[in-house]
Simulated assay, not measured.
Amino acid sequence: MPDTAAFKARLEADLEELESRQSRIADDLAEPLNADSSEQAIEMEDDAALEGQGALIAKEIASIKRALARIEDGTYGECVRCGGEIAPARLEARPEAALCIDCARSNERG
């Protein structure tokens, strides 16, 4: 079983940073468009990119929250698909990882 206290602290710090970024994106998207139509086109393109970033951040936040829930219920470090151990090196690289490397690879393939 991994040292969950260290992973929990890291996940909570990552979560705080992502929620802050998400808030800044929401603030940027809430700003009204410029009255100049050529500026509006640029701002709309920027908004589309921000919306994409926001969606990715929302996925990361959800993944981190699920990892924190696994820490709370004592299943952190166990693959949610096969029940095997997630390698410590994988958790170091991706503390929110829910799948062991074998299940992650098979998930990517299809």
Rank of each mutant, 00 (worst) to 15 (best):
Ala97Leu: 04
Lys8Thr: 14
Asn34Leu: 10
Ala13Asp: 13
Pro88His: 02
Ala55Gln: 12
Ile71Ala: 09
Ile57Leu: 11
Glu45Ser: 15
Asp46Arg: 13
Pro88Tyr: 03
Gly84Leu: 01
Pro32Cys: 05
Ile71Ser: 06
Asp36Ile: 04
Asp14Trp: 10
Ala9Trp: 03
Asp3His: 09
Ala48Ser: 14
Glu51Phe: 03
Ala67Leu: 05
Glu39Met: 15
Ala93Asn: 07
Ala35Asp: 14
Asn34Lys: 12
Arg10Lys: 14
Gln40Ser: 12
Ser23Gly: 09
Ile86Ser: 00
Pro2Cys: 06
Glu96Ser: 13
Ile86Tyr: 00
Ala5Cys: 06
Glu43Ile: 04
Ile101Arg: 04
Ala26Trp: 03
Glu31Gln: 15
Arg109Glu: 15
Ile25Tyr: 00
Ala48Cys: 04
Leu91Asn: 00
Cys100Glu: 01
Gly83Phe: 03
Ala48Val: 09
Ser20Trp: 08
Leu91Tyr: 01
Pro2Gln: 06
Glu108Lys: 11
Asp102Lys: 06
Asp28Trp: 01
Arg105Gln: 15
Leu33Phe: 11
Gly74Lys: 10
Gly54Thr: 08
Ala104Ser: 12
Arg105Gly: 05
Ala49His: 11
Gly52Ser: 14
Lys59Ala: 12
Ile25Pro: 00
Asp47Ile: 02
Ala49Tyr: 06
Ala9Pro: 01
Arg94Glu: 10
Ala58Arg: 13
Arg21Phe: 11
Ala104Ile: 02
Asp27Gln: 12
Arg90Ile: 05
Cys103Ala: 03
Glu96Met: 08
Ala98Tyr: 04
Asp73Val: 14
Pro88Phe: 03
Glu96Lys: 03
Arg94Ala: 10
Ala5Gly: 10
Ile25Met: 02
Met44Ile: 15
Ile42Phe: 11
Asp73Asn: 15
Ala55Tyr: 07
Cys100Gln: 01
Gly54Gln: 06
Leu91Ile: 06
Ala6Ile: 06
Ile42His: 11
Glu72Gln: 13
Gly77Asp: 02
Ser63Gln: 12
Gly74Leu: 12
